[in-house]
Simulated scan of single mutants.
Amino acid sequence: MKALISRETGGPETLEFGELPDAKPGKGEILIDVKVCSINFPDTLIIEDKYQMKPPRPFAPGSEVAGTVAQLGEAVEGFAVGDRVITGTGFGGLAEQAIGRAANCYKLPEKFRFAEGASLLMTYGTSIHALQDRGHIEAGDEVLVLGAAGGVGISGVELAKAFGARVVAGVSSEEKADMARVAGADEVVIYGRAPFDKDASKALATAFKDACDKDGYDIVYDIVGGDYSEPAVRAIGWEGRFLVTGFPAGIAKLPLNLTLLKSCDVCGVFWGAFAAREPERNRANVEKLFELWDAGKIAPPVSESYAFENAAEAIRKIGAREAVGKLVVTVSE
């Protein structure tokens, strides 16, 4: 089968098109004819051997797909050949066929496009787990979302609004600010590029505080890390929840005295491990996402679609933090 292949450690420039052996589903697995594969930040890490998962080479990156069921493995129930499905694959999605665990496959209603379906699980799955399970969000909360114009960030804005929160979006450009406003952000803070010196860090903390309607945020949803994290912690409220979710700007170093002064919680958000360890809770979360989607309260934002042969450019753009919204690759029509 045709695939975008990682044969050596490196960036998107090392990826090449070629042939991989046809996939076969094992027990509890489903073989999927891939229609669309969405691009996520882990795709930029896995090809550089910087992700928790390190598949043996050669392999195809691509961690989330939508398509149709081609073949059922042993002991799979509830699905039939031809069903429209979405799933997270970890890797292997940028290929004509991919394997999904049946426990992590979901039927995609006809009313939703494959591109939208391929953009749901990793972003909105992460955000509902972060805000609901780790952040214990409630109506009336004040939420700061960093990196609010990327796929995960937009899902965080939309879900926080759906849960009844007031949302402040942190973004790096006016173009991204417009995207965050469309997603429902009540206020936007545009920040510069790190690294920050002490004065710049203090100024950003002040900007975050000034955008807040309360005496600090109930939840900070940090998808960015790096020098952006400390100013956000300084803007958190008493007994707030700081959700550690991603590090495209680097791994942050926090002065732990701030957590004492704020009496706040620092919570890790590892959706992939949660989904593997607690599949029933994760499935309940996904079902809730489908309900919110059907009600029009969330809408996966597909901003750019790439041809299969240009998939490496989509991965490059995500890694360079140039993406606004969600990028997807059309593997087959």
Rank of each mutant, 00 (worst) to 15 (best):
K2C: 02
S6K: 06
E8P: 08
G11C: 01
P12L: 05
E13C: 04
L15I: 00
L15K: 00
L15W: 01
P21L: 03
D22S: 14
K24W: 09
G28A: 04
G28R: 03
I30W: 09
I30A: 03
I32A: 09
V36S: 05
D43I: 01
L45M: 14
I47E: 09
I47A: 01
E48P: 09
D49A: 14
P56V: 02
F59Q: 01
P61I: 03
S63D: 13
G67P: 06
T68C: 06
L72I: 08
L72C: 11
G73D: 01
E77G: 14
A80S: 15
A80W: 10
V81E: 15
V81W: 11
D83V: 05
V85E: 04
I86A: 04
T87A: 15
G88E: 14
G88V: 14
G93P: 07
G93Q: 00
A98C: 03
G100H: 10
R101K: 15
A102S: 04
A103Q: 12
Y106L: 01
K107V: 04
L108W: 00
E110S: 13
F112M: 00
F112T: 00
F114V: 01
A118G: 12
S119R: 09
L120W: 10
M122C: 10
T123Q: 13
T123L: 09
Y124I: 11
G125D: 04
I128T: 06
I128E: 09
D133N: 13
R134S: 05
I137F: 08
E138P: 07
E138I: 00
A139I: 07
E142H: 12
V145G: 06
V145Q: 03
L146I: 07
G147R: 02
A148L: 08
A149H: 12
A149D: 15
I154F: 05
F163R: 08
F163Q: 11
A165M: 05
R166D: 08
R166C: 02
E175Q: 12
A177D: 11
A177P: 11
D178W: 06
D178T: 12
M179K: 12
R181G: 10
E187D: 14
V189W: 08
I190M: 11
R193I: 09
P195V: 00
D197N: 13
S201N: 13
K202A: 14
K202I: 05
D213L: 12
D215Q: 13
D215K: 14
D215Y: 09
I219G: 05
I223D: 12
G225K: 02
Y228Q: 04
S229W: 06
G240C: 03
A252L: 11
L254R: 03
L256P: 08
C264R: 07
V266I: 15
C267W: 05
C267L: 12
G268S: 04
W271P: 01
G272A: 13
A275C: 06
A276Q: 13
R277N: 14
P279H: 00
R281L: 12
R283A: 14
N285P: 07
F290M: 03
F290I: 09
G296A: 12
G296S: 10
I298C: 11
P300R: 10
S303T: 14
S305N: 08
N310D: 15
A314H: 02
A314Y: 00
I318P: 06
R321E: 06
R321Y: 12
E322W: 03
V329A: 07
